[in-house]
Amino acid sequence: AAQEQWNKDAFAGHSVDDVVKALKGSAAADNADVTLVAPDIAENGAVVPVGVVSKLPNTTQIAILVPKNPNALSALFDIPEGSLPDIATRIKMGKTSDIYALVKADGKYYTAHKNVKVTLGGCGG
């Protein structure tokens, strides 16, 4: 079974900065080598598909964050040697928000972000 400890501090954070700090990193900025794939409009706020790919060498960690959720951090992945920095999962979003991909490479943190709209639906052409 899984061995690691669940990082309580990181999951208590409300912002990207909070989470980076809890992960013992310093400020993270957007980087074009981090790709975040998420829909423009969520089909279902309870099931939003999110994929992250990093082209940064020595990527060891990938996290998915939604700052407008009650707690920002959704998921944190450790990428061991031999695994590709290419993961996907599905998350919940309470309302329209930016989603952040947070990537640790060579010990430093980088991000990519995208606005995902959560709408009431209806109507159509």
Binding site: D40, I41, N115, K117, T119, L120, G122, C123, G124, G125
Partner: peptide
Amino acid sequence: EDVADNLFNPDPYYQQGGDMV
């Protein structure tokens, strides 16, 4: 507001293509 944004969001990828309720 929700329907208005589906019609008038400046980014077309955030529009759904219907008219206002």
